[in-house]
Write a protein that binds this DNA or RNA. Structure first.
Lengths: 158, 158
DNA sequence: CCACAATAGTTGAACCTTCAACTATTTGGT
DNA sequence: ACCAAATAGTTGAAGGTTCAACTATTGTGG
């Protein structure tokens, strides 16, 4: 829920500092990572879809599974798929087992695209995130965001 | 720069864990915060613009200053401004000193909107971020993202 | 003072995302 | 077996964002 509208209860300066830093730096970071992929004509979202497919058995996945693991809506995936299909990276196949379903299948060309893009993106993550942080920073972040995530999940119950 | 395309150099499992946690949890967190503002007909981006204006002297700011501090492009701000103006939250005024310029001025109605939305958003930040984390977590995050940000800034030189 | 570069801001087109409605199929209860 | 509800996926429209081009004005070197 999170919206009680009563009792403001402001953030303390240090709380505010943590929050602002996180929000501002994150936005810049994500923008930079996306920009680094421009040369490959990929957005981070498309990149992630391709990575999921590349790791899946037979390099194919059901649309809904892909949407859930990639954290995108079904509708968005559907629209995006049309574009990626036109680019030749994936194609769609009917699913025999469940006739409502579709397989998203990665093409050889899609595989090549991801193989080419991966080192660039990895480098980008390293130089802008991982290598900037100490081992301790990394662990702290992993732990903190794990808490945030499980807190979010627990609130879904509403 | 960050794109050398040579030597893959994969992330270690713990590095990968930090990265994945951060990316996935962040996306969910931001989505949740945005959803919490739905009741006020505000996006986080619009909210931030209004907060900046509300804190500025005379509750007004030059368009370009607003764009920079709010981390949005000038074009986007311009488009958004048209919508917010229609909603009655802000209006635009010619700048006498620099005749190219425009002041974005918050209206009383805009002030009311932000006063009403602030506790909701604050509560949302608390319950989904601040209150989930220990003091130490918060400090670690502030520090880590400070590093990330200044690293990003230093690379702008290209 | 003039020419030229830089800055402020807007615009329209292209593209992307969301939202709600829709078809088709499967599942579960009776 | 049947029917209602749930699930898989797509679609079109509405709205948001980006990109490059544009106008208007200010700053600057000569």
């Amino acid at each position: 829920m999170a919206g009680k509208s009563t009792e403001p209860k402001w953030l303390s300066p240090s709380e505010m500092a943590a929050w602002r830093r996180y929000i501002v730096a994150s936005r810049r970071l994500l923008d930079a990572l996306d920009a680094d992929l421009d040369s490959e004509d990929l957005s981070m979202a498309d990149y992630e879809v391709l990575v999921l497919l590349s790791e899946a058995p037979d390099r194919r996945m059901r649309m809904s599974e892909l949407a859930e693991n990639g954290l995108v809506s079904r509708s968005r995936l559907s629209h995006r798929m049309k574009v990626m299909e036109k680019a030749g990276w994936v194609k769609r196949q009917n699913c025999e087992v469940d006739k409502r379903g579709q397989w998203a299948v990665m093409t050889p060309k899609g595989w090549q695209a991801i193989v080419k893009a991966a080192p660039i993106h990895l480098n980008s993550i390293r130089s802008r995130f991982i290598d900037v942080l100490s081992k301790g920073d990394q662990e702290a972040i992993a732990q903190a965001f794990k808490k945030i995530e499980s807190n979010l999940r627990s609130e879904v119950i509403e």
